[in-house]
Design a protein around this nucleic acid. Structure first.
Lengths: 167, 167
DNA sequence: ACGGTGTAGATGACGTGTCAACCATCCGGC
DNA sequence: GCCGGATGGTTGACACGTCATCTACACCGT
């Protein structure tokens, strides 16, 4: 690590801006969503991913992977959503261990009612504020960063180089 | 709201990329930080903001505002950090209600030990992956978004226009 | 068929965040 | 001076997320 390479002015501004935006955007979108649709962001994400799946059904693990959630987290969250009647669990016919998460009619109603307002909020607070170049840049570099991070699970900082085994 | 204006392909890609990056970056930075310095990201942020303040001391509310945290959250978190000896609370001399948060020697040691590694991680996983244009774009639009959101606290979606009273 | 190993999920304990009271103090008007 | 409302901070109850653990089943080699 030797002499640390601090962030220069431009980098620091961008980094602070990112974190601040991240926080404020979250708060705002969560507020809007809760007020307009009675859903939390995690609720929305679950319902949204489910609604995009054929028949509104997905294996729990598959859903967890898509969302980048731990199975445990998803399991807990599903229990709460199940109580509210938004989803149900079914046993998996092809794998005795598995469960299948299924969107209920009420869940579908909820996501369909919430979506237009949520998309509008995303536009209002973020997307519509970007010019085409910025939008393109956002697309490019987020995917670049994601590929790096998703590629080598830990990509340790320890030794100088190269991927390392996952933990 | 009428016919909802959905996100087109480019917008959708950028938005999904953003959320995915956000999640993975968080996980990775948190992991690195915990492993290398035994701090959570919230810990780091508190210490970092404190260490930038004169004498390492700030009014609780002032700190909460800078961090965009609720006073309640900060108060809880400080109690935990105080237990670990990273900060202490002092009574405020100019306002009988207030408390002043003070960085301890150990707290200063912790943040100084953590900083180089954390900055390196931020570079490795994000900053160094952006070309100058992208960095500039990130700086620009994040601040634009922040200004909007910070400006009109709620900036309601309800009526067509204009700021509304805070909740 | 059987035993060992790995994987899918569930669960409980615990740390953290939020929300709604709550108390103490400050401040502006009378 | 004092009263009413605002402000600074704390607290407790509850929602949520994580981690370690546990059970049940799958898969593979023999």
């Amino acid at each position: 690590m030797d002499v640390p390479r601090w962030l220069d002015d431009r980098e620091d501004r961008a980094w602070r801006g990112y974190r601040r935006m991240r926080r404020l955007l979250d708060l705002q979108l969560a507020r809007d969503l809760m007020r307009d649709a009675g859903l939390s962001e995690p609720d929305y994400d679950v319902l949204s991913d489910l609604s995009e799946a054929p028949d509104g059904r997905l294996r729990l693990g598959e859903l967890a992977d898509r969302m980048l959630w731990s199975r445990s987290r998803l399991s807990h969250h599903l229990s709460r959503m199940q109580q509210r009647g938004l989803v149900v669990r079914e046993e998996c016919t092809t794998d005795g261990r598995g469960s299948v998460v299924v969107l209920t009619a009420e869940g579908r109603r909820a996501i369909e009612a919430a979506a237009p307002g949520h998309v509008a909020a995303v536009r209002r607070h973020l997307i519509d504020l970007l010019d085409p170049d910025e939008l393109a840049a956002l697309d490019r570099f987020t995917h670049r960063v994601v590929d790096r991070l998703a590629g080598a699970g830990d990509a340790g900082r320890a030794s100088g180089r190269g991927p390392e085994p996952l933990t």
